[in-house]
Amino acid sequence: MNESLSSEPIEPDDPERRQFLEKTVSIVLGGAMVSVPVGAGIATLLAPLSSDKGGSLKVRLASIEDLPSDGTPKLYQVVAEKKDAWTKYPNKPIGSVFLRRIDESKVVAFNSSCPHAGCSVDIDSDGSAFFCPCHASSFDFDGITQGKSVSPRGLDELEVDPDLLDKGEVWVTFVKFKAGVADKVEV
């Protein structure tokens, strides 16, 4: 039934022109008609490749007074409208961010997703560093890897809007980065 299976048939006794024509037509048509359903299918399968990136999103997470003045990081959940294929979720947690107040005019924000493999980074038990429970990467409060960390880079710092910060509001541009590589690559 499957004409394209044998592209070099050896017909023992009859190498006529007619047969050659028949074979050619069969193979060409066979290939064409299999490629239509397969082609449409592959196109849908590969559709995610051409869809947009997650993109960045600017969100208000806190006001500056909410953050401890001694520089201890505090974790905030980022809730946003999210579209998943056909569904639009009005309020969906899409990630979380550590905010750390350096002084009255400076706040640092880290994406809490570990740059190693994407686990959720925590603060270690003695409260002195960031610690990832999955593969034991450790980061100091400036986000830099310390000790025997397997993470290829430090925690991903996010942009805090300086103008809004002057008004006491912490607005962060939330971006996700690719895990497992040394450079910060947006996904």
Partner: peptide, 19 residues
């Protein structure tokens, strides 16, 4: 005749028409 290519040739043309 032989199934390949005599009959398959006809099959292919009609299948193509079906598609």
């Amino acid at each position: 005749g032989m199934f390949w290519p005599d009959q398959i040739f006809r099959d292919a043309i009609v299948c193509f028409a079906v598609l």
